[in-house]
Design a binder for these strands. Structure first.
Ligand SMILES: [Zn+2]
Length: 389
DNA sequence: TCTATTTGACCCGGG
DNA sequence: TCCCGGGTCAAATAG
């Protein structure tokens, strides 16, 4: 098995387990890979090159590449959601819709792994080329603010989709070393992904400004209904970063920054229909005048504040949660993960040097793989360490 | 000249 | 009512 280095493995909780025989709170999970961001956050102003860089142009500085990677990571997060849409059965989709209001949070941590290409298939949506070509998330974003949030040690950046009238926004928190601390998407795009035109790609800000640069655009993916992207549900997406070593058989995990391990679950209520609240944007009067608070502007701009709004979040998962990992057979590597006190046995299937699938065994013994039809419970693969889970 | 980012000020809901 | 803090605006700035 060949491990791809610097990749993130995101594990998404897609829905609650509905197997009849299962009374326990287990879930269905699906995973996807993304590259591990390495860029350092540089709070410096005006460092970001605004000019979009033609795809493929990047072969340049490592720094650029790193930046791109971060962006891609984000993109994948979002794309994963798309993927999700495809993979699920109608039933699942309904389930998702039910929760659509909830914020989507994805956690990640680091692990090692291989093939960057990831599970590519599913993700083909996004990336496609192994080569860089950042696809970011395929949408164009404009940064409209940055702020140091109180509870967070990292600055939070605010982005808006640049598409006309598209209400989608995203908040990105990134650690100084480039780790994605959290990404939250709100709303759903009301337009298809923009075509990858080298020109005119509004900075895809995937990150703090400086990184914005070079973006190569991507979007290659089939259109997939992006309409669903943000509406997906999960509040508990968890991600693992797999780190790795090129050919080692056993992944070695490490924790670059001692990341956050908190997996936050928005309170989420599932109800609520996801209609984006229309924001009535009225011409606002300029606010920035003198300190005197002027009468409030009269615009009533709806805010997507509640957690039931569509959104997604990326949260790092500490490596501690990956309690064990090792290769069990020719094309499988197992690892044990502890997510919210739920023990998951992850199995990375690797065929032809490509990771083709990942499945998890929840502590209740139910086994779910991305493609597993609802209710079907494939035999539980035996985990080498099963004795001590 | 144009466009995107930076960044401090402002808005506004919650406590 | 005041204060706090997250989110947003928009002038200034940079490329
Ligand atoms: Zn959009």
């Amino acid at each position: 098995m060949v491990y791809c280095s610097d990749m993130f493995l995101f594990i998404n909780k897609t829905k609650d387990c509905q197997a009849e025989a299962c009374n326990k709170p287990c879930f269905c999970w699906r995973a996807f890979f993304t590259e591990k961001p390495k860029v350092l956050y540089k709070p410096m102003a005006k460092l970001a090159p605004r000019k979009p860089i033609p795809l493929l142009e990047n072969k340049g500085s490592a720094a650029s590449d790193q930046q791109r990677e971060i962006a891609e990571a984000e993109a994948r997060v979002q794309s994963a959601n798309e993927v999700k849409q495809h993979d699920f059965t109608a039933e699942c989709q309904q389930s998702l819709l039910a929760k659509s209001q909830q914020e989507k949070r994805i956690v990640n941590s680091t692990i090692v792994l291989e093939s960057t290409e990831e599970v590519a298939q599913s993700q083909s949506l996004i990336n496609t080329s192994t080569v860089d070509r950042p696809s970011y998330d395929g949408y164009n974003w404009r940064k409209y603010g940055q702020k140091q949030v109180k509870g967070s040690e990292y600055p939070r950046s605010y982005y808006k989709c640049t598409h006309l009238k598209c209400p989608v926004k995203k908040k990105v928190e990134r650690s100084y070393d480039g780790q994605i601390a959290e990404i939250v998407y709100r709303g759903e795009h009301n337009h298809p992904k923009p075509q990858p035109s080298k020109r005119n790609q509004p900075a895809i800000c995937s990150d703090t400004s400086k990184e914005t640069n070079k973006s190569a655009w991507s979007n290659q993916h089939p259109q997939t209904s992006e309409a669903y992207i943000c509406r997906t549900e999960n509040q508990n997406d968890v991600g693992l970063t797999i780190y790795s070593a090129s050919s080692s058989k056993v992944p070695c995990f490490y924790d670059p920054i001692g990341m956050h391990s908190s997996v936050r679950n928005p309170g989420d209520s599932a109800e609520g229909n996801k209609r984006l609240e229309a924001t009535c944007v009225e011409p606002k009067i300029k606010r920035r005048k003198i300190a005197g608070q002027s009468n409030g502007a009269e615009g009533c701009e709806g805010k997507f504040i509640s957690q039931n709004r569509d959104s997604q979040t990326l949260i790092p998962l500490t490596v501690k949660q990956i309690t064990e990992a090792f290769q069990s057979s020719d094309n499988k590597t197992n690892f044990l993960v502890d997510v919210n006190n739920v023990k998951l046995v992850g199995i990375l299937f690797n065929i032809a040097e490509r990771i083709t699938d990942i499945s998890f065994v929840v502590d209740d013994g139910c086994f779910r793989s991305r493609e597993s039809p609802e209710g079907e419970i494939p035999p539980v693969p035996e985990a080498p360490w099963s004795g001590g889970m």
